[in-house]
Design a protein around this nucleic acid. Structure first.
Lengths: 209, 209
DNA sequence: GCTTGTGAATCTCTTCACAGCG
DNA sequence: CGCTGTGAAGAGATTCACAAGC
């Protein structure tokens, strides 16, 4: 169950989301075809992914939804929950707080940071905000290993280094900048400006496929 | 210069961003190595990408920055500019307005929509907001072909169909939902919840590579 | 020497297609 | 039968490595 590819991780996450929805609708078993159809991949892909994590559906009638949700959880989640830091309380950061607060049972934003004193020392959407100066101590105290970075591009490298130094091992980076960090720190970048340029390109040229 | 892969488009966008920064710093030529290093890919990858769009640097001393920026622009941009619609003025949508308004010379959000009358009929960050009912006429009038979708997941499918019907050809989808649309419409989804789960996973397991 | 441009090799990811099972 | 699990084939993307230019 060791090295699972990034693509597979993403799809597992999608599968789980859908499975939970199906379970809420009262279903308890599902075929790879169905899962594939709803998530937008092929059935073979679904079976491969489940094979990769070592999950077996009974051949009889597809996969047991509840079991599969649990199994995916064992792969993706930290059983004891995962505290997350949000760094940068600009427009985007403030918008993400309620967005992430809403959903996840395991992932929880427990601390927010900003360099602007006007934005700190408060509680925003149930999350305490601290001045940047307290970044390292708070992250260490709360044992935070995952951070969301929503600072301006110019500050991103510096702040990410502080995060890494404080012990953060994964950064979800929204700043339009490339972060250079030790290999022990994983970075996943969401570059919305690039995504918009891409979709504008695709809209002009005909659709691929 | 025809079918360019999605990956390449994204990287071209990155290259351009960097090139503009270099040009602002007074530089006028650049080697593939340098570009690669700063963007986080290999030099061979850079050269492949430029080959793919048919750009030739002089062998003498790398690539002419200004020419390359222009060339990438010819590939990516609609020369007459690209009007964009934003649909969904919740927290995220409102945060994206200034974010996108800031930067791009060609891509410009010219209309925003929301189903909540309290949020419409105003001008937010220089962008006029309309009630959803006016979605189709406004999009047709403004000849909008690109839309950013920031509505709740439950509404995403329906709204995206309206967009498609109104003539939109590319959708940047932030809703955690899979859109089923005619193949003529391109969809690029940014699923922040999935991305956060992924980075949490990577933070727990050691880094890949 | 240092580049770029590029065929060929490699790696990674996805799909095919079928054995095996209930 | 129609399903899952999976070896093998296929597609795509990346890197290697080297010819050719200045």
């Amino acid at each position: 169950m060791n090295k699972i590819s990034g693509r597979t991780i993403e799809r597992l996450s999608f599968y789980r989301r859908l499975l939970i929805k199906l379970a809420a609708g009262g279903e308890d078993r599902v075929y790879s075809h169905r899962l594939a159809e709803e998530v937008g991949v092929t059935a073979a892909q679904v079976r491969r992914d489940l094979m990769e994590i070592g999950f077996s559906g009974s051949t009889k009638k597809g996969y047991d939804i509840e079991k599969l949700v649990g199994f995916i959880g064992k792969v993706l989640d930290n059983p004891s929950g995962e505290p997350v830091a949000l760094v940068g309380l600009g427009n985007l950061g403030r918008a993400l707080l309620p967005f992430f607060a809403a959903h996840h049972p395991k992932l929880k934003i427990v601390a927010a940071f900003d360099s602007d004193p006007a934005k700190t020392g408060r509680v925003i959407h149930g999350c305490r905000s601290y001045p940047s100066r307290e970044l390292q101590p708070v992250i260490e105290r709360e044992k935070i290993r995952v951070a969301i970075l929503t600072v301006p591009a110019a500050a991103a490298q510096e702040v990410s280094e502080e995060l890494a130094a404080a012990g953060v091992k994964g950064i979800l980076n929204f700043a339009p900048a490339m972060l250079r960090l030790p290999a022990a720190v994983s970075v996943e970048s969401i570059d919305m400006a690039i995504a918009l340029e891409k979709i504008a390109y695709l809209a002009r040229r005909g659709r691929a496929e």
